[in-house]
Structures are given as C-alpha cells and as structure tokens.
Amino acid sequence: MSEWWTYRLEDFLLFSPRVYWRLFELNNAASWPLHLLTLAAGLAIVLLALRRPPGHGLWVAFILAALFAFVGWSFLWSRYAAINWAIAYVAPAFGLQALLLAIGGAARGSLAFDRRDIAGRLGLLIAVVGLVVYPLMPLLFGRPWSSAEVFGIAPDPTAIVALGVLLAASGGLVPLLFAIPLLWLLLSGLTLHAMGDSQAWLPLLAAAITVAALALRRIAR
C-alpha cells in the first residue's frame, strides 16, 4: 500500500454501522432457536470447567471447537465476508482455532481446566460475562434486541468466553489457543471504533483483561 501513513482506521471501513448490525439481525433470525442450544453449551462449558469431572477437558475443547467452526462458517464466511472482503481471510482462522481446540481436547493431558489462581478465577468470571451479559448489550447501546450478539452464534462473545475458560486452563497447547480469539477481539474492537460505535471498548477491554491476567500470572511465577 502506497503512502500508508496517510490512511486512517476509518479508511478501511467498507460498510455502514446500519449494515453491520443488520448482519446480526439477519443471522439471529436465520439461526433461531439455536441460541438456546449454544447458550446451554456455554453454561455447560463453565460448569465443566468449575466441577472438572473426568474427561472435562475433552468436552470443553470439543464444544468450543464446534462453536468456533460454526461461527466461522455461518457468520464470518457466509455473512460478514459479503460486506468485508478481508473477512474471507479471517474466517479460516476460526476454522484453525477449532482444529487446535479439537487437537488439544483429543490429545491426552494436553488440555485441563484446572487453574484456580487469580487469573483462572477471573477467566471464569469473564466467561460468564461473555455468556450472560454480552447478549444484553443492545439494551445498553440502544440497538434493536434482534441484533444481540450471542455466544456460539456471534464471534465476539464466542471469543470472550473462549478466552475466559482458557485462562483457567493448563496444558501444552494452551498458549497457542489464545492468539486467534485475542486477535479477533482486537480486530472487532477496531472495527467498532472506526464505525464510531460506543461498544468498541468491550471487545478491546476483554482482550486487555486477558493479556493483563496472563502477564500477572507470569509475574507471579
């Protein structure tokens, strides 16, 4: 790109806020009542991470993998990429995250949700917020209820819940699993910021808290 320093964030925005939020409305209408299933799956993930029954790592990883694959295909690839060609390159990253989660879940001992330090507890709190509070954002920001972002249906709450439970996880693959959800939240926050949307701070805050929690854990070591 020539004269790249002359470009502002807004120059990369290809669509209007109205079109962006209409994407969620149409996606929600097409997906309903899957929301009930994905929310139940999210609740199950948090409960599995809290109670840690035998084989919980595999179940949490498989549920997250399935939902990342679903969101990547149904929302990013099938809807968002139509108004933002760059998303065609991002959607496969959700597929890669699903693959990594599936590998982490399938490989014995590579993923356990057993951390109960401050970062781990904070992570589970973040997961609950992503699951329960995120869908309520339209009420706070004056958008139609039909544009709600729901875990397992929309990318932001899916990434936030994933980061939350990963903060409570241990295993060789775990550091790798943070990258894609963090990068997604950064991209989403910057997009909302370019749109002038006051919700922009939410995905950025979730990413910042996750990075801070990881840094604190490292320092505590």
Binding site: F15, V19, R22, L23, L26, A82, I83
Partner: peptide, 12 residues
C-alpha cells in the same frame, strides 16, 4: 462506496 455494500440483505 459504503452505501451500496449491503451484503445479501434483501431489505437494504
């Protein structure tokens, strides 16, 4: 630019 980028939205 931007105004006609409405995806598959039938209303838009």
């Amino acid at each position: 630019w931007i105004t006609f980028n409405v995806g598959d939205d039938p209303v838009l």
